[in-house]
């Protein structure tokens, strides 16, 4: 038995696009160890730096927003990023749970 516990993130992305914002979709594509959000978890970020949804329990969202703003600036369509406990900036954005996650960032255009 399974249900799709959907968080309506894509619907919100559509609203943002209609409001003429640039939007990046961030999706958890891989996890190792005890990561807080499962594969397929989503977050959206716009060019104003607003975000909605989550890819972790609040551990790496700020860093994801920063990466996305970089994508807008460089006009890059997509990028894969990873977070581990051993990240240099672990004190700031590492996963306190000891898990690791890979996130796929893609601009919606």
């Amino acid at each position: 038995m399974k249900n799709s516990f959907d968080e309506k993130i894509l619907e919100e992305a559509k609203d943002w696009l209609e409001a003429k914002r640039n939007v990046v979709l961030a999706t958890v594509i891989q996890t190792w160890g005890s990561s807080p959000r499962p594969i397929g978890s989503r977050m959206i970020i716009n060019d104003k730096g607003d975000f909605s949804g989550s890819v972790s329990g609040g551990c790496v969202e700020t860093a994801v927003v920063r990466e996305c703003l970089g994508l807008f600036k460089e006009k890059k369509p997509f990028k894969k990023i990873e977070f581990k406990v051993s990240n240099e900036s672990a004190w700031e954005v590492g996963l306190a749970c000891g898990g690791e996650i890979a996130i796929f960032l893609e601009q919606i255009n």
């Binding site: 249900n3 799709s4 999706t27 594509i29 891989q30 397929g40």
Partner: peptide, 17 residues
């Protein structure tokens, strides 16, 4: 949901609620 082993393809399934 996940990356298919040995490929670069990510699959995310949507099932009926």
């Amino acid at each position: 949901n996940g990356i298919i082993e040995g490929t670069n393809i990510f699959v995310e399934t949507y099932i009926r609620p």
